Amino acid sequence: MFVLLGVALVVIGFALRINPLLVVTVSGIVTALIGGIGPLDILNAFGTGFAGSRSVTTFAIILPVIGLIERYGLQAQASRLISGLKGLTTGRILALYMVVRQVTAAIGLTTIGGPAQTVRPLVYPMAKAAEERRLGLDVPNQALPEKTAEKIKAFSSSSDTVGLFFGEDVFVAVGSVLLITSFVDTNYGLSLEPLNIALWAIPVGIVAMLVHGSRLLMLDRTLKTMAGVVPATAATRAGGAL
């Protein structure tokens, strides 16, 4: 049971808001040492995992591309698009994105979205623009309160994370499903088929969609109570413009 101290370290590190990469690395090393694995074997495991996961280095390609398209106004264009659609609120935009993310992940398209390539340059600016339109903050020198903007950022990321996490297990060939089946077969001698896991993941994914989708739809009400800016009328907009 002492090897579970690594899990406790992760919980404590995240609660103290220490760098997640450092927390996970230290927790892994501590768990391995408690489990009787030597330093060289630990280093070998880290090296093998890094070399075997080529996706670790994809940030070297993604970040310059995101920076380039943002430089040429991707966020501004996304905000301008949403500002003309009256029916879309912040919560509805994020709920719609979560559904799309979960459905696409369920059919194996797990890499078409993500915090870096989708949430930051597209989803968050659109959600933020919807709230700015609701508050009438299209006047120069006015912006969302910091707490409101941070709340939208958090829910934008959560819509992507929840959609991916509960959607990818429906796809039988995803790595997490294959890891579960191989672990159960190796350690417990049970025959567990990937299709069974995928089928049981469907009702779990539906529940996750309903629960977090409801939270996203209720976000609009939360933002109304958080906003310290009174929605602008035509008169106040004219006055602000002057």
Rank of each mutant, 00 (worst) to 15 (best):
T225K: 15
V100F: 14
A8K: 00
W200I: 11
A8Y: 00
L33V: 13
P64Y: 04
F2D: 12
A173P: 07
T111R: 05
A238S: 11
I112Y: 10
G189P: 09
L88Y: 08
A143K: 10
G6L: 01
L22Q: 03
R71Y: 11
L223C: 03
A60R: 04
S214T: 15
A45N: 10
S159V: 02
K128H: 13
I42H: 11
P140S: 03
L33H: 08
D169K: 07
N141C: 02
V56A: 13
L144N: 12
L223V: 05
L192G: 06
I112D: 01
K224D: 15
A227S: 15
G167V: 10
V204L: 13
L109D: 01
I29N: 05
G38H: 08
T236S: 15
Y97Q: 06
S182D: 14
V172S: 11
T90C: 07
S53G: 03
I61D: 02
L94I: 11
P140R: 02
W200D: 05
V162A: 06
G91N: 01
V123H: 07
Q142C: 06
L81M: 11
K153I: 10
V177N: 14
T222F: 00
A234T: 13
S79I: 06
V26D: 07
L219K: 01
F59T: 13
N187A: 09
F171E: 12
A238V: 11
V123G: 02
I42S: 07
K147Q: 14
L81W: 12
G52C: 12
Q102H: 10
A198K: 06
A127S: 01
L96W: 13
G240F: 03
T111K: 00
A76R: 07
E131W: 09
T111H: 01
A15I: 06
A106D: 12
A143S: 15
G163K: 02
G108C: 12
I34F: 06
E146N: 09
I42D: 09
V24P: 02
F165A: 14
T181E: 05
N19G: 04
I93V: 15
A154Q: 05
G239F: 08
E193A: 14
A232V: 07
L219F: 00
Q142Y: 09
I12E: 00
A227C: 12
T118N: 04
L216T: 01
L4S: 11
L9K: 00
A149P: 01
M218S: 11
L9S: 00
Y188H: 14
T236H: 03
P140F: 01
L43Q: 08
V207M: 11
R54K: 14
T104R: 04
R221P: 02
A227M: 06
A60Q: 04
S83K: 11
Q75N: 10
E131C: 09
A106S: 15
M226V: 02
T148M: 09
Y72I: 05
G136S: 03
L5D: 04
I69W: 02
L223Y: 02
I66E: 05
V23L: 00
I152K: 00
G205F: 08
L242Q: 12
L195K: 11
